[in-house]
């Protein structure tokens, strides 16, 4: 097992986080992080940041909007 090093890991961390790496590259990054506290902490910040954004932005469409859209669609369909 060869370590890909911090430089490669840092460059690829965001793509790793978003599941954009091929299996091979993802394995390299994972293996590097097992032995590198700095990079795995950096990755943790990324994970927490994504989760914080997802939490803050989760939205449910208001019921009114749902029924308005449905009514409008019905309207168009009956007129065509």
């Amino acid at each position: 097992m060869s370590d890909c090093g911090c430089e490669k890991a840092r460059k690829a961390l965001e793509e790793y986080l978003h599941n954009e790496l091929c299996t091979e590259d993802a394995t390299d990054i994972r293996e590097h992080m097992e032995n590198c506290v700095d990079c795995s902490d950096e990755h943790k910040v990324g994970v927490v940041l994504s989760a914080a954004v997802a939490r803050a932005c989760a939205e449910t469409a208001p019921e009114d909007l749902r029924s308005q859209v449905m009514a409008q669609l019905r309207d168009i369909q009956t007129h065509n």
């Binding site: 700095d38 902490d41 950096e42 994970v47 940041l49 914080a52 939490r55 803050a56």
Partner: peptide, 19 residues
Amino acid sequence: GSRSAEAEAIDHLPASAVK
């Protein structure tokens, strides 16, 4: 400060601040 402190802090931020 440190990255682990940073992760900890971001994790505890209110949603309004993130928004």
